[in-house]
Design a protein around this nucleic acid. Sequence first.
DNA 1: CCAAAAGTGTTTGATGTACACCCATGA
DNA 2: TCATGGGTGTACATCAAACACTTTTGG
Lengths: 228, 228
Amino acid sequence: MLDQYKQQHPYLLALDSIIFGFDGESLKVLLVKRGVEEQTWSLMGGWLQPNEGLEQAAARILFELTGLTDVYLEQLYAFGEPHRDPIVRTISVAYFSLVKVADYESKISETFQARWFSIYDLPILLFDHGDMVDLAIKRLRYKAAQHPIGFELLPDKFTIPQLKKLYDAIYNTNFDKRNFSRKILSTNLLIKLDEKQKGFSRRGAYYYQVDLAKYKQETDSFLNFIPT
Amino acid sequence: MLDQYKQQHPYLLALDSIIFGFDGESLKVLLVKRGVEEQTWSLMGGWLQPNEGLEQAAARILFELTGLTDVYLEQLYAFGEPHRDPIVRTISVAYFSLVKVADYESKISETFQARWFSIYDLPILLFDHGDMVDLAIKRLRYKAAQHPIGFELLPDKFTIPQLKKLYDAIYNTNFDKRNFSRKILSTNLLIKLDEKQKGFSRRGAYYYQVDLAKYKQETDSFLNFIPT
DNA sequence: CCAAAAGTGTTTGATGTACACCCATGA
DNA sequence: TCATGGGTGTACATCAAACACTTTTGG
């Protein structure tokens, strides 16, 4: 009865994460220099352990390397070309993650050489990691156009101009601020706070927070989210 | 140097396909009774071979069981909960496929017990195959709302009423035929033929074909595809 | 000539897009 | 008082939604 299992070849299974961050100006991806190929940048990755599920493993690896928990994590794609890892055949399930850069800064582990790279200025990457990043960017654009996931990249309190800059960065464009704010506010997902941002502009922009209850509900519904 | 590879556990890697078909009335999934669990229906599946990529393997398995080639095949999700297969830990990469039922009929292999089930009347399935089907239906609805993939489920020549019935089946609703045909035709993806369908209605409906050149271009672009 | 399905047009409301001016504030 | 970024409103075009009648033809 087990024969049909025993005849089969097993494969190594890795998890790699494309970690997006936004520094207020441009969209960034977190890359590391690791183990085998010290001279090449690569995605954060690790191996699946026998007692854990795929997403659980991706979350563990992300925690080990950044100290972050409770971040947005979504399966991107399984990569399995025979020679993608030239040493041993490995299947990699890629995840993409959206983190708030400020949270990360405070928790950065010094053990790893890690750096944020603008998505428009990436180095050569290990194996097929470049394809993974390309696909992740495509998916982020696709998804952010319909679901309000952009908030995951901003601090808990943010201003409308900050949010617009984020969308400008994601789509490499320049949305009209009037249409942008009308559309964003029409979702009723934002709660205006009484507080203004200090120090950036003279007038100061109002801070907003996501209405978490509504946000959780809407995560699965369709929303057309790109204005002009 | 290979140490970090050697320390790692390998896993079996399976591919399972959710195969959708449309018989003119309702949306169907093709299920089989196979090997180990003769009494339970399951998805079509098989093992990854050492020399093939994931999509290649999924296409091979689909061919072995149905004789079909050149079908629409898209990676759905990688499933890897530790005990999803209670005998040996197996990671399964699920694909979903859209086939033209008429093509399949002629090529059906008699080796396997296979049957089409309405998506609204599915039996209990092996392992987590039920979750896979649920996710595939969700993905098909999501995707068909924006990309004109519905054609993959119809014969090369089809009528507008047939296409509407397909969309009615996918979304379990009843679109307004006037709005539906206006919207579909406005894409300019359909070429009207000089021929009418015979035998179904007295008047007969015109056949249409997909403009393949345009279709390939648009496959990756956004199209809001659900009318009323 | 009748039943059954095919085919087509108009009106109304909602949403998207383009565009420009005043406001608040710190220096 | 002025420079800088924040905030808002309106007109027009486009698209979605609701809705009903005429056409064709085989029996």
